[in-house]
């Protein structure tokens, strides 16, 4: 009998704490598959954020650290500068990366820090119970925007890939989504390219993954995927925002 489906070696043989229907599990798996395929696990140090994926250090088989809220890119900078041969990635949510950690993110990017960021954007704070995120959509209802996000009061959502793509230090920035199988396949390609670029020393790479939060959105997992498609993708268009490899080919 041949094995047709197996756990990637870079993924630890434990069950995760994520809610049913959450797409973190898929994204973890994609990262792990890429580490396996590029044979990077033994060289890799991952940095877990504060947020739902705070315990990601338990789920990957590579060396791991756990950063303070928003500081993962700074910690990753220290890890990479101290040990340039290592492959360093951070795994961060929207609050972590685009609110409290904006400075660390922008400056790691503009320095061209040779690290990879997996940025999971589900437009809400999950772990703390569904508050407004920097990426919460206009009029979206959350615990702290009970009447919908009023941009006059709470400001506008941040488009991270668009913003970072203006920076010279960024080698690669792509936005992908977890809503359909083709999109998930595209996400894996993007994550693989990001790690590949890091191996080649090209600079800062980020893959923004549009993701769901059925629990805090108050939707079933399937309906949540539909909500992502109908609301998030129009506001956060998928695609490559920067790719220095492609620019060279032009």
């Amino acid at each position: 009998m041949s094995v047709v489906f197996d756990r990637p070696k870079a993924l630890s043989p434990v069950s995760t704490h994520y809610c049913p229907g959450c797409t973190h599990g898929i994204i973890h798996r994609l990262v792990a598959e890429v580490l396996d395929e590029l044979d990077l696990t033994g060289r890799t140090v991952g940095v877990a954020p504060v947020g739902c994926s705070v315990m990601a250090y338990n789920y990957f088989e590579c060396d791991m650290t756990e950063a303070a809220h928003g500081r993962a890119p700074a910690q990753a900078t220290g890890l990479k500068r101290a040990n340039p041969d290592s492959i360093v990635f951070t795994y961060q949510g929207d609050g972590d990366l685009a609110a409290i950690g904006t400075a660390e993110t922008v400056h790691a990017a503009t320095r061209g820090e040779n690290i990879t960021i997996i940025f999971v954007n589900n437009a809400i704070y999950g772990m703390t119970g569904g508050q407004m995120a920097p990426t919460t959509l206009p009029n979206q209802v959350t615990q702290t925007t009970p009447y919908g996000r009023d941009v006059k009061v709470a400001g506008h959502p941040v488009r991270v890939c668009e913003m970072l793509s203006t920076l010279d230090g960024v080698a690669y920035a792509e936005r992908v989504s977890m809503d359909t199988v083709p999109h998930i396949n595209a996400a894996k390609k993007a994550i693989k390219k990001a790690f590949q670029y890091q191996v080649e020393g090209k600079g800062f790479t980020i893959v923004e993954v549009l993701s769901t939060c059925p629990t805090n959105w108050g939707l079933s997992p399937v309906k949540a995927l539909g909500w992502l498609q109908e609301n998030m993708i129009p506001h956060y268009p998928l695609g490559v925002y920067k790719d220095i490899g492609a620019e060279v080919q032009k």
């Binding site: 140090v45 950063a67 700074a74 900078t77 890890l79 500068r81 101290a82 660390e104």
Partner: peptide, 14 residues
């Protein structure tokens, strides 16, 4: 804030 977290990262790398 970033500097001290870079310190943490480098210290973690030994």
């Amino acid at each position: 804030v970033a500097a001290i977290n870079m310190v943490l990262g480098a210290a973690a790398a030994g």
